[in-house]
Amino acid sequence: MLGEKHLLSHEFPKYSALIDTLKSQNSDFCASAKRYHQLDHKIRGLELNKVPTTDEHFSALKMERAVLKDRIYHTLKSHTG
């Protein structure tokens, strides 16, 4: 769906408290979460405002967001046992 928000708290609702904790206590996690948010914001802006961009650029942004989401998920899982 175009323009859909992919907030980490919506993507991983059962980890909301852990996400908040790791953002404040783990600088690497915090940096990944910030970059994920930036990418999501940029992707949504391109979709909703119909900003001209190449398919390659748009796909690269989405791929980077997916890679970060996977990394974030593995970090969350590693902190829950």
Rank of each mutant, 00 (worst) to 15 (best):
S78E: 13
Q38F: 09
M63D: 10
L61K: 04
S16Q: 11
Q25A: 14
N26P: 08
K34C: 08
H6Q: 11
L61F: 08
D40R: 00
I19R: 04
K42F: 10
T53F: 11
H41G: 07
D70V: 01
R65D: 04
T53S: 15
V67E: 07
P52C: 13
K14G: 07
L7T: 13
A17Q: 09
L61C: 04
S24I: 06
Y73N: 07
V51S: 10
D55R: 15
F12W: 03
D55Q: 14
H74L: 13
L39D: 03
S24E: 13
T21L: 14
T53Y: 11
H57N: 10
G3R: 06
G3C: 11
A31V: 02
V67T: 01
E64Q: 06
H37P: 04
L76Q: 06
I72K: 03
F58T: 11
A31F: 01
K77E: 13
K14N: 09
H37E: 14
P13S: 06
S16F: 07
D70M: 04
T53A: 15
L48T: 12
N26H: 11
C30E: 06
E56H: 02
A31S: 02
G45E: 13
N49K: 15
T53H: 13
N26E: 13
D40M: 03
H41K: 12
L2I: 10
T80Y: 14
M1G: 13
L2T: 05
A60R: 06
V67G: 01
R35Q: 07
N26F: 07
H79C: 14
V67R: 00
N49W: 15
A31I: 01
F58V: 12
H74V: 04
R44Q: 12
Y73A: 08
Q25S: 13
G3M: 12
D70E: 09
E56Q: 03
K42V: 09
L68P: 00
Q38N: 10
L18A: 07
Q25V: 10
S27D: 07
L22G: 04
L22I: 08
E4M: 14
Y15L: 00
T80I: 14
L61Q: 03
K69H: 05
H74Q: 13
F29E: 02
L7K: 14
Y15D: 03
M1W: 12
A33Q: 03
I43R: 03
D20P: 00
A33N: 06
T75E: 11
T54L: 07
M63G: 06
R71K: 10
R71N: 05
E56T: 03
L18I: 05
D40C: 02
A31W: 01
Q25I: 10
L61T: 00
K77M: 15
H37S: 09
K77N: 09
Y15P: 00
K62M: 09
Y15A: 01
T80D: 15
E47N: 11
E56C: 02
H6N: 08
G81T: 02
M63N: 10
L8V: 05
